[in-house]
Design a protein around this nucleic acid. Structure first.
Length: 443
RNA sequence: GCUCCCAUCGUCUAGCGGUCUAGGACGUGGCCCUCUCAAGGCCAAAACACGGGUUCGAUUCCCGUUGGGAGCACCA
């Protein structure tokens, strides 16, 4: 039995968005569990839109999530010669043909067909013309079989396929000589020995055409698994403008990679009633058979909960390390780890949904410029409590041993001297005085 | 418009003909705990889109309707 080979093939036209990250995760988990190898391929043949920055963003995002690949990255743009060779081969065998129809001409015919109430696919005008290389400016189209069904058994969707008559002879090389995506993907997947293509469901209806290409090339196609799309609120398409969509966005908002991974894994996949999955558990339990077929919404609330869960689970030193950059950012200087910070972080882990939140709650520890919240200060730092606070201040200064029982004793004594108000009457003003805000660990 | 796909609480989901008075989780509401906020504990409200079949029996199978999505490029 040959080893399983998969690939993650993003196009570098933005950043690593959540859908892509999940596709990468599923590929990774499937591959690791099966003991296979995963290839990273950058689909950058669209020069207009591809940038090196977004390519870097893909590496950055994957490594932050801990999704490692085994081979590559390969750039599709650097494999041009292979694509061209494949097209020439198809041409030589008559399985592809040159087409001199211009986009304008096609548009006219398309409109006419639609006006006549019929549906349009390429009408095959150049199909039997046997145009040679001297035909002038031309594109190349794949000659589809006259009839039959282009079908496959999708690992997620089950029996799938489309009648060839629904599809026209598609262009595989542009008139400027550039190979098209569908051709490049098939050639690359073949060359790289890919056995399982796991990709977004937006490619589901693209697959029949690729199948035709495998036929023309006389090769066995890989197995396909299409994973459902992630949609935005209300089931609408994700909007890059409205929704936070890149993994970098989530990192900046103070989410842990474990949480994002866990969250992603549970969108469109489940393992019984289990909600919490570590990276290792995803790798051990992931199963394409349990992947859903319907699109799912990404719920930010669930992410927050998972993030808090993973913050609570993070070992102390790691938590401090994760917190440091965020804390440095709020006080605008480099903050070094310290025992005090470590202890505070322990107190704060159950109170923070994100590292951003935790940083803002730890601010008071690393700066003398306490930022007093006006509302809290007005409510708790009133003139009447000043004597009690001063008393506490002096008693504390006189206290040699700042152990918890000793401190508690001082608080009790101070309360007793000032008419025994409820603990909250003393603790809350102290909290505001010390931290600047009304929220903190036990004072 | 055409082709294909999808449809269980607000959200993610369990369910693969009787076990369903439909389970879990997030979120929401209430109570407990409490120096604040959390965390934690307990409780509650909340769903099988609709209409036909098939069957002794449908959330589960089939068809249609509705709703949503994807594709239909000399983009990837």
């Amino acid at each position: 039995m040959s080893t399983i080979r998969t690939r993650f093939a993003p196009s570098p036209t933005g950043f690593l968005h959540m859908g892509g990250a999940r596709t990468a995760l599923f590929n990774w988990a499937f591959t690791r569990r099966a003991g296979g190898r995963m290839v990273l391929r950058i689909e950058d043949t669209d020069e207009e839109r591809s940038t090196r920055e977004s390519e870097e963003a893909i590496y950055d995002g994957l490594s932050w999530l801990g999704i490692e690949w085994d081979e590559g990255p390969f750039r599709q743009s650097e494999r041009r010669a292979r694509h061209t060779a494949a097209i020439d081969g198809l041409l030589a065998q008559g399985r592809a043909y040159r087409c001199v129809c211009t986009p304008e001409q096609i548009e006219v015919r398309r409109q006419a067909t639609i006006a006549a109430g019929r549906k349009w696919t390429y009408d095959g005008r150049c199909r039997e013309l046997a145009l040679g290389a001297d035909a002038g400016r031309h594109s190349v189209r794949l000659r589809l079989p006259a009839e039959g069904k282009l079908a496959w058994n999708d690992l997620v969707y089950g029996e799938s396929g489309q009648d060839v008559r629904e599809i026209g002879d598609m262009i595989i090389r542009r008139s400027d000589g550039a190979p098209l995506y569908n051709l490049a993907v098939v050639v690359d997947d073949l060359d790289m020995g890919i056995t399982h293509v796991i990709r977004g469901a937006d490619h589901h209806s693209n697959t029949p055409f690729q199948l035709a290409l495998y036929q023309a090339l006389e090769k066995t196609p890989p197995l396909f698994a299409h994973v459902p799309l992630i949609v935005g609120p209300g089931g609408k398409k994700l909007s890059k403008r409205r929704d936070p969509v890149s993994v970098q966005d989530y990192r900046a908002q103070g989410f842990l990679p474990q949480a994002v991974l866990n969250w992603l894994a549970r969108i469109g996949w489940s393992h019984g009633d289990q909600e919490v999955f570590s990276r290792d558990e995803i790798r051990e339990l992931f199963d394409l058979e349990k992947v859903h077929r319907s699109a799912a919404q990404a719920d930010a609330g669930k992410l927050s909960w998972l993030n808090q869960h993973w913050i609570k689970a993070l070992p102390g030193p790691e938590l401090v390390n994760a917190l440091l950059p965020f804390l440095s950012a709020v006080v605008e200087r480099e903050v070094a780890p310290s025992p005090e910070l470590a202890r505070l972080a322990e107190q704060l882990r159950e109170r923070s949904k994100t590292l951003v939140e935790m940083a803002s709650l730890s601010r008071f520890l690393v700066t003398d410029r306490i930022a007093y919240e006006t509302k809290a200060a007005e409510k708790h730092l009133k003139r009447e409590i000043e004597p009690m606070l001063s008393d506490l201040h002096e008693s504390l200064q006189a206290l040699p041993d700042w152990s918890e029982p000793a401190l508690e004793r001082v608080f009790e004594e101070v309360r007793a001297r000032h008419g025994s108000p409820a603990m909250g009457k003393l603790a809350q003003p102290v909290r505001v005085a010390v931290t600047g805000g009304p929220v903190s660990p036990g004072i």
